[in-house]
């Protein structure tokens, strides 16, 4: 990251802890990353990896009692961690917007789609009802919703999953946010609809100049959408880097194993999938050393005492693994060459 350019979002050593059994449990530990203007960054991890918690913490949306958010998250130079609720609220929905996994449950069931989008516009801008609705209809049209004026008058349950997610994105974009946080935006959708929504998200950079922080568990979605990727494992950063590098030469054994365990749709079919044995640890029983250690094929004595620090591997690539420093980096992935025509 050149020093003269300030990233849109700069997260440094973000920690989120919740109280449990008299102590504090760290759900997210020292997560750092940047999002540049008009960039799509992927935040990947399995369930419990802390990827959604990270996003919720950035938005100030975690309200479980006793939760502690530490570290720093600067949005255009403004510190989000510890920001006054009122100031954060003004930012939320206007400068940073969020879309969620299940568009069925993410809309309030008793109001029309249009009403809910109008509400967000009018919460941040002094606009008449009529003007807000006009913008709502225009946004729905931009998101490819057929017959937007009538769709605006419909209730969430009356729309299909794909249309609901388009409406959700329209709502998120209603105040022209510079950053859109999308939490598993296509997980609840069918593949053909997922492809449409991903296309839409990719286009936002050009049409709205928005950056997107895309949270997902699907490596396929990341590969097709994100310029840079951040891999989380058990609340810690495993690896980050440009998506193409990360997929071709993963530096962390977890990233490599995760990519290998995806059944291939093209090319030869392996008789068995190279699955990762065991389970990710829960935050409570996370080991003192590398969290992936117990499941790692390359684990050895240096991994055990403390979590390996994030080290620079190559241009823009970082990994929390001792292997590269010890001079035994992982080989490039053999299957990475299997591109599609």
């Amino acid at each position: 990251m050149p020093a003269d350019r300030m990233p849109l979002l700069d997260v440094r050593n973000l920690c989120v802890s919740v109280p449990a059994n008299g102590g504090m449990i760290r759900l997210v530990e020292n997560v750092s990353f940047c999002v540049d203007e008009a960039e799509i960054v992927g935040l990947v991890g399995e369930s419990g990896s802390g990827k959604s918690v990270t996003a919720m913490a950035l938005m100030g949306l975690i309200d479980s009692p006793g939760v502690q958010v530490r570290g720093s998250a600067r949005f255009r130079g403004q510190e989000l961690v510890g920001m006054a609720p009122r100031a954060l609220r003004a930012l939320r929905g206007r400068d940073i917007a969020m879309i969620f996994q299940d568009p069925m449950t993410a809309f309030t069931p008793v109001y029309t789609i249009g009403w809910q989008i109008d509400e967000q516009i009018r919460a941040h801008e002094r606009l008449s009802r009529r003007a807000a609705r006009a913008r709502t209809v225009q946004l729905l049209a931009e998101m490819g919703v057929p017959d937007p004026a009538r769709t605006a008058q419909r209730y969430p349950h009356q729309l299909s999953g794909g249309l609901r997610q388009r409406a959700m994105i329209a709502m998120a974009l209603s105040c022209n946010p510079t950053l859109l946080i999308a939490d598993e935006p296509t997980t609840a959708l069918d593949v053909t609809v997922q492809a449409q929504i991903l296309e839409l998200l990719r286009g936002l950079r050009h049409s709205h100049g928005s950056s997107v922080l895309l949270i997902t568990h699907d490596m396929g979605v990341v590969a097709q959408t994100c310029a840079r990727t951040l891999v989380l494992y058990s609340g810690r950063m495993a690896e980050s880097g440009p998506t193409s590098t990360l997929f071709a030469r993963p530096a962390h054994p977890y990233t490599a194993a995760l990519l290998d365990s995806i059944p291939p749709l093209d090319g030869p079919r392996p008789p068995r999938l190279p699955a990762i044995a065991g389970l990710p640890p829960t935050p409570r029983e996370r080991p003192a050393g590398c969290a992936f250690g117990p499941r790692c094929a390359h684990v050895h004595a240096t991994c055990l005492p403390a979590p390996p620090a994030l080290a620079s591997i190559g241009p823009g690539q970082q990994a929390a693994c001792v292997l590269p420093a010890e001079g035994t980096p992982l080989p490039p992935r053999a299957t990475a060459q299997a591109t599609r025509p």
């Binding site: 949306l61 939320r92 206007r94 969020m98 969620f100 993410a106 309030t108």
Partner: peptide, 24 residues
């Protein structure tokens, strides 16, 4: 989820509670 959406929209806690929570 919809209460979380309402908060993510930047609505005031009162409005989230009354217009979205209580109404439902």
């Amino acid at each position: 989820d919809f209460m979380r959406t309402a908060r993510a929209k930047g609505l005031s806690p009162t409005r989230v509670m009354l217009r979205h929570g209580l109404r439902t």
